[in-house]
Design a protein around this nucleic acid. Structure first.
Length: 207
DNA sequence: CGTTGGATTGGCT
DNA sequence: GCCAATCCAACGC
């Protein structure tokens, strides 16, 4: 399986809506304390821009979202619904808050280790959602702020990016404000994409 | 200081 | 389809 070279800082130093679709087909590598290596291929992402009311960064820096305002290429991890962690890649320029949420992936390496972590056999559901992906890769609060460009424990490699014709684009999942923005991208036809339902234009997700 | 609700998931009706 | 789980940042008083 081709991992390719690491993605460089410059790759992330662009608007989230530009970086997000180009992350499809890239490989996320996770080195576990025991030495095991996990690798997954990204198949679903969402962009969160600075002027985006759905973004954690919309109202300015807070202790939680501070990493989003730091340099690009770092990982922003937060706890959602008190239960699940979500992993993002920080994008744009230092000092401005933007990121790409990693929503789903296809396991490439360490399948059995991932199955054990998830307590689940079905390959298609191992990483098919933001909370599932972080559980599969053992990403939690302690990993918030890790540098994906220079770090050893988590990083991204070139993989094989998807041509635009193999990408699909919709509104984002679970978003109530800024629901009209079509900032979710995924690999067309992939069985590893999350089952989450995109927001409907003009209507909130819930209610 | 008390309340609210969320970039979700899995289990149950 | 419905809803509980479980934390805590954000916000109102």
């Amino acid at each position: 399986m081709r991992l390719g070279p690491r993605l460089a800082r410059g790759f992330f130093a662009r608007p989230a809506t530009e970086v997000a679709p180009e992350l499809l087909g890239r490989v996320m590598v996770r080195r576990l304390p025991g030495g095991d290596r996990l690798a997954v291929r990204l198949v679903e992402v969402e962009a969160y821009e600075p002027d985006d009311p759905a973004s954690h960064a919309f109202k300015g820096p807070t202790p939680r979202n501070l990493v989003m305002f730091g340099p690009p290429g770092r990982m922003y991890v937060y706890l959602t619904y008190g239960i699940h962690f979500c992993a993002n890649v920080v994008t744009g320029i230092d000092g401005v808050g933007s990121a790409v949420l990693l929503r789903a992936a296809e396991p490439l390496e360490g399948l059995e280790a991932i199955r054990r972590r998830r307590g689940l056999e079905d390959v298609q559901r191992l990483c098919s959602g933001p909370g599932r992906l972080t559980q599969a890769l053992d990403i939690e609060r302690r990993d918030n702020g890790l540098d994906l460009v220079l770090g050893r424990d988590v990083f991204l490699t070139a993989g094989r990016p998807l041509s635009p014709s193999r990408r699909s684009r919709t509104t984002r999942v679970g978003v109530n404000v800024g629901a009209d923005r079509r900032w979710r991208w995924f690999e067309r036809g992939s069985p590893f994409v999350s089952p989450g339902r995109p927001s409907v234009s003009g209507k909130p997700v819930k209610g």
